[in-house]
Amino acid sequence: MDILRDAKFLVLLPALVGFLRVGVRRQGWTRWMGLLMVIVVGLEGWCYWLSSQQRSNTLYYDLYMPVEFVLLCAVIWEIAGRKTKVRTQLLIGLCIVLTVFTFETSHNGGFAQFNTNTLIIGGFCLTVLSGLGLFRLLEQPEPLIRLPEFWALLSITAYFIGIIPVFGLYNYLAERSSELASDLIHMNDVLYVVRYGMVSVAFFLASGRDLRLR
């Protein structure tokens, strides 16, 4: 399964190159997705080093969750934010997720284990919101597969819809078998590769074009 872990790191590379290619034209959603990319690269590197030192990295992943949620909300906001309804739904989702995160952190032993409830609820909200954003793109005259926004939103939908069952049962499995829980995490790695593969496509399509949607 090391190949999956390596792939997880390797797939970040084209996404990062794609983000750099967007260059001075960085605007709209690309800056938020790019910022998330930079944080992810730092986080994954740091957590990989911690795990190689046999130290827990759950604290960092838990702290990363609300940051990721806020940044992805910003991405969806930039793409689909022209519709007032989506803005309202984004704000509602943001409030729910931050409330769950605060509650889970204070009532569930702090950062000792993955805040899976935050991840599941956040994942559900992001799936719905990015799905709404995808429907918003139907108004565009250009073919969807050539729209970077399509790939950016699809990466969010695909990843978060996939991790809901994974993290829904992660703590249950971790309490009974750490080995099986570790196997389960590999599914997250697969989703991770799918997600950042799509993000790479989005960045490469975004380079050299005006990102203002009609």
């Binding site: 695909a158 819809i161 996939g162 994974v166 499995l173 389960l184 599914m187 989703l191 799918v194």
Partner: peptide, 12 residues
């Protein structure tokens, strides 16, 4: 879980 996740991905 893996099957559910894969089905969700296929759904997307």
């Amino acid at each position: 879980v893996v099957v559910m996740s894969a089905v969700a991905l296929l759904f997307v």
